[in-house]
Design a protein around this nucleic acid. Structure first.
Lengths: 131, 131
DNA sequence: GTTACTACTAACCTTTAGTATACTAGTAAC
DNA sequence: GTTACTAGTATACTAAAGGTTAGTAGTAAC
């Protein structure tokens, strides 16, 4: 196999550290409490303005939202559109690059769903054994 | 489609918040600076002892390693084996449940690799346009 | 007795992430 | 003039994560 996957044990240290830093990069870019929530919110609504995002992404403060939007723009996930009417309106929308996250998002959702179900069954089983 | 994916826009708020909390759960369990590094290290080496892990996972302190191992054991990813010879030896190994992470790990590695390549090409293109 | 290995743990400190509150400048309705 | 909207920024704070250093108890070699 040409493609170094994760399923096969990797006894090559180089391939392993490359995989490790790739994982690190990913978690660095999409990790944290808010980034994926913001992306998913815009994915759901289409174009969104700042205050609209702050109302939709529950619990986020203006400061953090502002920082996250800058990060997301730097990483090419969103585009900031300025409309110089009055009042000045600024809209954020997802770029095509954000679509590259779809497979990863799907994996994250699937695993989280599966894990929650497992936890539920584990605690149910534990309750049965205590009786 | 019965299965709520991420590729399709989700206008159902319920499906969306369910997806969001699944993603949150996943990042809560495998997120952070060390968890995946530890899992990958044990995946590579097989059974590992505490000090061996500390030497392999570069930069981790005993305190943090100890905490992470407890977390990983609680979440069912690793098993702690105690051998009461002298000296007492304790070995950590992956459980079958850790294999459920394979697909997710693959997604994380793939996206990180792709993203790094994109960054590289972007900066190369920027350099060309400055000439 | 000193050193070194086993596997940790306690106390403390720093760094990072996130929160809270207030504030800015521009426009417009009441 | 006051209120409220636009999109944020400034300052100060708390909480969580992680790092540093030292120390524990047991075993064994020198």
């Amino acid at each position: 196999m040409e493609n170094p996957g994760v399923n096969e044990p990797q006894h090559s240290t180089n391939a392993c550290t490359a995989a490790l830093s790739a994982v690190e990069d990913t978690l660095y870019v999409i990790g944290g409490k808010w980034k994926l929530k913001i992306i998913i919110a815009i994915k759901e609504h289409g174009r969104m303005r700042f205050n609209e995002l702050q109302r939709t992404v529950e619990g986020i403060s203006a400061r953090v939202l502002s920082n996250e939007l800058k990060d997301l723009e730097l990483n090419g996930f969103i585009k900031r559109n300025v409309y110089t009417k009055s009042p000045v309106v600024i809209e954020y929308q997802l770029t095509g690059y954000s679509d590259t996250l779809d497979g990863l998002l799907k994996s994250l959702v699937e695993w989280g769903t599966m894990h929650r179900e497992k936890i539920r069954q584990d605690s149910r089983q534990a309750a049965t054994q205590n009786n």
